Computed example of a mutant assay.
Amino acid sequence: MTDDEKRRIQQVHILLSMYNALQPGVFAVSGWDLVGALPLPIASVEDRMSDGDTRWIQRGAYDLTGSTPEAMFSAEGIPRARCLYGSLPDQLSDPQSFASQLKQILAVRQAYGIASSRQVAIPDVSSPGLLVMVHDLPAGKGTQITALNFGATSVEETITLSAIATGPVVDMIAESVEGDLNEDGHLMINLGGYEGVCLRIVSALPIGIEEVS
């Protein structure tokens, strides 16, 4: 696996994490996710699959804290999986790692109460890989928009947010102002391949959504 392939896997993994974390409800992540554990070779767990349970190839051992780097098996005898990301201490020292990026996403989720938000629209879009979800944040924190491009090519879409007070459009993860929502309510979504964004309209009223042709 090349370095570019590893980066692409991490990029798509972050995109999937954004999909799950940046909408209402419960978010869960496994230790296998956190270390980027790859499937085990079938031969290494073949004796455990005699009952037809092939899920053992996804259950490799991993060292979340990096405390036993020399161990090749868990205490129960499960072979150690090859891990793309490494231990949490190593990842958290690198701002570009999977765990560090996930930490940013979860900090935004916590700070703005996205888990308790209310999904008010999933606008129609023309790009087949694009998903846009619109949420009403609790405690008057405005409208939050999760836009995710699951395709390999860049997308550009315009949606209309009706009945929303004009105000700054903020990238909640990058903590940057991306522009303003004008009186026409048009919002442009520009994303590269396998990219996502979490936006907030600072001053918002109850909304309705319609696609712009």
Score class of each variant (00 low, 15 high):
92 L>E: 15
24 P>A: 12
48 R>K: 15
85 Y>C: 01
33 D>I: 04
175 E>M: 11
53 D>T: 07
132 V>N: 03
11 Q>T: 14
32 W>H: 10
22 L>I: 05
189 I>N: 03
32 W>Y: 06
177 V>W: 10
94 D>S: 15
198 C>F: 07
155 V>G: 10
16 L>K: 12
185 G>L: 01
201 I>K: 00
157 E>P: 01
17 S>A: 13
206 P>L: 08
41 P>V: 10
6 K>S: 09
81 A>F: 08
81 A>N: 08
111 A>Q: 14
189 I>D: 00
23 Q>K: 09
177 V>K: 12
31 G>Y: 06
195 E>P: 05
35 V>L: 04
3 D>A: 15
211 E>K: 08
53 D>C: 12
36 G>S: 11
129 G>R: 03
176 S>C: 13
128 P>M: 03
50 S>L: 13
137 L>P: 00
119 Q>M: 10
210 E>A: 13
170 V>Y: 02
82 R>H: 15
102 L>N: 14
156 E>A: 11
178 E>H: 03
117 S>N: 01
153 T>L: 12
51 D>R: 07
138 P>G: 09
80 R>V: 00
190 N>H: 05
71 A>P: 09
43 A>D: 15
149 N>A: 11
179 G>L: 01
166 T>W: 05
1 M>A: 14
23 Q>Y: 07
204 A>S: 00
28 A>L: 05
21 A>M: 06
81 A>I: 02
154 S>T: 10
26 V>D: 11
18 M>T: 03
133 M>S: 13
157 E>L: 01
156 E>F: 06
180 D>R: 00
161 L>W: 00
80 R>M: 06
162 S>P: 02
198 C>P: 02
133 M>D: 09
116 S>R: 10
31 G>V: 03
213 S>V: 00
141 K>C: 06
5 E>V: 05
164 I>M: 08
194 Y>K: 02
205 L>S: 12
73 F>Y: 14
135 H>W: 04
8 R>M: 11
185 G>R: 02
142 G>M: 01
51 D>Y: 15
204 A>C: 02
58 Q>E: 14
10 Q>S: 13
61 A>S: 10
83 C>N: 12
128 P>L: 07
56 W>S: 07
168 P>E: 15
190 N>K: 11
213 S>E: 10
12 V>I: 12
20 N>S: 06
148 L>E: 00
150 F>Q: 05
10 Q>L: 14
185 G>I: 01
110 Q>M: 11
153 T>N: 12
